[in-house]
Amino acid sequence: MKKMSRREVLIRGTGLGMGLIGVMLSVPAVGFLLSPLFTKQKLTWITVGPIDEVPVNQPTAMIAEVPVGTGYPTPPVKRIVYVVKKRDGPTLALSNICTHMQCDVHWDPSLGNFLCPCHGGLYDIDGNNTGGPPPQPLAQWVHRTHTDAQGRTILEIQNQLDEHI
């Protein structure tokens, strides 16, 4: 091995010291920065309400108080669940989050479609994207129903969508 001069040792040492400082500082910083990638969202079930009154073939918006489930504790936020009842076929609990840029879509009876006000995305009554920029159908909330003591059908959702958008 070639013998290093004093100057060379000093230069290498300076580099090593700086690198060490860098590593010590960046491990916690980067870990902290990236922590949302590894933190699971806290999931809960939320009761939306009875859906017996919802008319057939007419998407109806219901409001649920949905906990965010990330970050420091905050009060739940209001979210829309579009309940779509079909004469045959399952009842849908569509989110009104546009799959394009996640604006709030609403049912427009004159268009017979869900319309997104942001960029003009259109979805049919089943939530399939029918026009404009949206790349995917509307996602549904993860949901389940049960019958309560009065015999009503109660819709419950989880604070996550069953399709990743």
């Binding site: 409001i63 609403h106 004159s110 006000p117």
Partner: peptide
């Protein structure tokens, strides 16, 4: 006439 998008419907 097709009405322009009326947005206040779907009462929760």
């Amino acid at each position: 006439a097709p009405s322009s998008s009326s947005v206040d419907q779907g009462q929760p």
